[in-house]
Design a protein around this nucleic acid. Sequence first.
DNA 1: GGTGCCCTGTGG
DNA 2: CCACAGGGCACC
Length: 274
Amino acid sequence: MPELPEVETIKRVLQPHLVGRKIKSVIVHNDRIVAYPQAELFALKVSGQMIANFTRRGKFLSLHFLGGDTVVLHLRMTGALTLSPPSAPVEKHTHLIFVLDDEKELRYEDARRFGRFWFIENGTEDTISGKSKLGIEPFDSRLTAAYLRDRLIKSKRPIKEALLDQGLFAGIGNIYADEILFTAKIRPDKAVCTLTDDDFARLLKAIPERLEYFIEKNEISFEAYLKSKGKEYRNTPYLQVYGKAGRPCACCGAELCHTVIGGRSSVYCPNCQK
DNA sequence: GGTGCCCTGTGG
DNA sequence: CCACAGGGCACC
């Protein structure tokens, strides 16, 4: 479900309500969700910690504790975070509950159970969550045409596959890869080594511009977020190509095409994207 | 590099 | 009923 804009939304909405809170205890309903260490130990180590900050990197979120310990988490396809009063009924797919010191519970729900949590001890390098392998943040000023060319130019793989490579760009997923390429007017299956300087320039502009745009469109109040149980993403009306195969291109009216790239469903305009 | 797999829910 | 889903990884 969540790509960078959604994860950023979750961060922005929950951060003010988490910072300064103490985790009184952790209730684990499903061991599988805790990747490291073993669930019982995870609960033990997290209990009693004070939340100093809540941040996003790529599609990862991190709870930074006073003293330097960290919980890293990834929502994968269907993970969601909510704040609920303890009296709220525990949902069918609630796997993890952090009991806070303000009569609220930070709850993790995940129908498909692909999401994962890791506990990283202060002073230990996080080599297990995958966060350290991430490439550049799309809003980083070091994301330049030169960066793109250096990393991409020799590759024969489709540009969309490169955009989805978390080791190159942190946080772009299947929806926004399609949206970015539509805006940049580049076919998703175009081999990276055939991109022109012009293509690179448009791509460089489209990446932060599109993500910023969708973060804006995702904006939601704390109350509305909780009401939707952390699953409300309002940007679908603003998508131009994703999920719209067979429908007319908003730009030229041509019928949008569907194809599969790197095993992922992809939609593009055969006329606007070259 | 492709493919399967981890899972459940939903829509055709 | 089957195909597919916004992610990522292990495995030929």
